[in-house]
């Protein structure tokens, strides 16, 4: 149950990325383990969408029962179609990085340009190092929009334009 082979799924108390990561890290503090992959999903099976999370821990000591909350449970397969919030290499992504460097330094498997292929020497303008690739059955994919010659912008950025003070 505590091997790094296992993924966990749960319904986070707070769905926002920063809260999700902080809550997970706080729960694991002092346990000798860390969540190295964290993903979010949207469960649309009910009347209203619910954000769920999945994560994988690194190797380490056995976890005390219930440490990760009531809803958390281990699963046998890697949850796919997740929006990846944390992944190996995600904490050190610069504002601008070439496609080749991004693939070499992070767990992103491919960068897919919308409407045209992204070349290895093209630049991904992450704005501030923020990346939210998506895990598909065949790998972790970063979808990017054209942003000028030889430049791409991830489809999801950290701070899109906020309308009416963010209440829109």
């Amino acid at each position: 149950m505590t091997s790094s082979d296992h993924w966990w799924v749960g319904v986070p108390a707070q769905a926002a990325d920063a809260h999700l990561l902080a809550d997970l890290d706080a729960a694991l503090a002092g346990s000798g383990r860390r969540a190295v992959w964290v993903q979010t999903h949207v469960d649309r099976s009910g009347p209203a969408p619910v954000v769920t999370a999945s994560w994988q821990l690194d190797d380490g000591p056995a976890l005390p029962a219930g440490l990760l909350g009531d809803t958390a449970r281990p699963v046998d397969e890697v949850p796919v179609d997740g929006r990846v919030v944390r992944f190996p290499g995600s904490d050190a992504v610069p504002a601008r990085i070439t496609v080749a460097q991004l693939l070499a330094t992070t767990a992103v498997d491919r960068v897919v340009g919308i409407g045209a292929p992204a070349s290895p020497e093209d630049v991904v303008d992450t704005v501030d190092g923020y990346l939210r690739p998506v895990r598909h059955p065949d790998g972790v994919e970063l979808l990017v929009d054209p942003a000028g010659p030889g430049t791409w912008r991830p489809v999801e950025i950290s701070s899109p334009h906020e309308c009416c003070g963010g209440h829109g």
């Binding site: 949207v42 649309r44 969408p49 929009d145």
Partner: peptide
């Protein structure tokens, strides 16, 4: 976002 219609997903051919 969670309230978005899933049929409007960005793909390799359109956003």
């Amino acid at each position: 976002n969670p309230n978005s219609f899933p049929g409007y997903a960005p793909t390799a051919t359109e956003n």
